[in-house]
């Protein structure tokens, strides 16, 4: 049997898709036999990244504003999830990753999105180019205890 797996999906950057996206990726990760806690971690991290794309990448919710989500499982049960948008991009990625940093304090944004991803996943990289978009890549080794 082939180890590893891959998925790719494209969704409009709409609020209602935040729930769909996190549950879809969590469903994909099930084959790694994750614990309940690991599934929660994955859902939370994906939700943060997708919410960032919905709230910050685009000016308005339109069907043509897309988010591309890829997920990969490799041979040792490491899950890699990338969340990409084609929106405005982030001027200063290092600043955006600082706890409590937000460009929208009036909307009660906590500024903790990237911090939560870093807490719940093993690895986080953020690539962004102003005017072109942002790609968030998250990695987590899962289901380690379930394998012999």
């Amino acid at each position: 049997m082939m180890n590893g797996n891959h998925m790719k999906m494209e969704i409009p950057a709409l609020g209602k898709n935040e729930s769909f996206a996190r549950n879809a990726v969590a469903g994909f990760a099930v084959e790694c036999s994750p614990t309940v806690s690991e599934i929660s971690d994955i859902k939370t991290a994906v939700s943060e990244a997708v919410t960032n794309a919905v709230v910050h990448a685009y000016d308005a919710e339109r069907a043509e504003n897309l988010i591309e989500i890829c997920a990969d499982i490799d041979d040792d049960g490491t899950l890699t999830v990338s969340v990409r948008d084609f929106g405005r991009g982030i001027e200063d990625v290092a600043a955006a990753r600082e706890p409590f940093f937000t460009t929208k304090p009036d909307d009660e944004r906590s500024g903790m999105g990237f911090t939560v991803i870093e807490t719940f996943m093993d690895e986080l990289t953020v690539d962004s180019e102003p005017g072109k978009g942002t790609t968030v890549v998250m990695r987590k080794r899962i289901g380690g205890n379930a394998r012999t």
């Binding site: 859902k43 903790m112 939560v116």
Partner: peptide, 13 residues
């Protein structure tokens, strides 16, 4: 059943 940092913003607000 689920909360993320937006829920955190709601609580802190």
């Amino acid at each position: 059943t689920f909360v993320d940092s937006t829920g955190l913003g709601l609580i802190l607000g």
